[in-house]
Design a protein around this nucleic acid. Sequence first.
DNA 1: TCTGGATATATCGGAGCGATATATCTGCCT
DNA 2: AGGCAGATATATCGCTCCGATATATCCAGA
Lengths: 183, 183
Amino acid sequence: MKLSPTAYVILGMVSREPRSGYEIKALVDNSTRFFWTASYGQIYPELKKLSKAGLIEGVDAPTGERKRTVYAITEAGEAALREWLRERPETYEMRDEGLLKLFFAGVLPREEAVEIVRSMRQRHDRLVERLRSIEPKALEKEDPYPLLVLRGGIEFNEWFAGWCKRMESQLLDPAAMKGAADV
Amino acid sequence: MKLSPTAYVILGMVSREPRSGYEIKALVDNSTRFFWTASYGQIYPELKKLSKAGLIEGVDAPTGERKRTVYAITEAGEAALREWLRERPETYEMRDEGLLKLFFAGVLPREEAVEIVRSMRQRHDRLVERLRSIEPKALEKEDPYPLLVLRGGIEFNEWFAGWCKRMESQLLDPAAMKGAADV
DNA sequence: TCTGGATATATCGGAGCGATATATCTGCCT
DNA sequence: AGGCAGATATATCGCTCCGATATATCCAGA
């Protein structure tokens, strides 16, 4: 049975304890967000599909008058999750408008190209701060992998910010940019 | 006038010399591919839109019986491109199935979690090789920015491969992974 | 008591991507 | 010479996915 990656996000998120669609979405936004997102438009239909397929099981858990269904993983679901984890990861994509702009920066005067990398650096500096603020929570958990990935994200953004800084210097050093097309 | 990022990819790609949709696609696949892609399904309709908006100009340049239109940027197009380049970059996304799997690796025995980072490392090692093979071509051009971005891509993938290597060691060192949930 | 924000589910439009269909051209092998 | 594979060129389709929003209930604090 072929499932979408989003299906496995759900399986993973309910694998430790039962959760509602809303909770799953909130979890994704606070953890996997920087390398994998999921929208309500994917989560709710997928929950029904997985439920029908017997990989998760929904249990009514209303709050007063408000409907609420929490989903727990089944044995079949655990098996499917583990099977997927054992397969070689495929999808790897990146979309960075900053790099795209830098790529075309030849039509700008040099000082304006510098502005692009400055903006990029700022973004990654902020991302580092944001991820660091999450770290204490990840430290409390007994599962070490989310923490490992989070720290990876921090180091990655530090690296990226550093690269931007180096490029900033390089762009400001005429000797290093011989041949630059200053329009 | 609000344009899609893909529109600016096209403007950028035709800003130095006129090109056909097919050439633009080939260029994207060989240069911006690792941080920004574009499909035929975007490029051809967008070429018509931009042409209608007066930002590019199509000229028939058939090869024998085969129709062919090359598009050149107009002054309005150059202005639009520069304006966009001056705006702060917004979009920044990453989708990495490997990190996602690593995030959920707690349900696997340790040795299998190691396999995930091994796969990831392999991918980035290969990407480094592939990008390095493009470098000589970028060195020939007078525009330094594509080369700068390409080298950034190489360094980034080297960094990522290195991180994977470190994680591999860490996962294999029991002391460093105290609390790991070896199922 | 009222209100704003959190919880909870559902859905829609638009964008983007991969794949494929169609057609012509070119170079190479036999 | 013929023919075939692969490159050039344009067009289109289905699918997935994301952001935004609609609806409704709950709860905490002013």
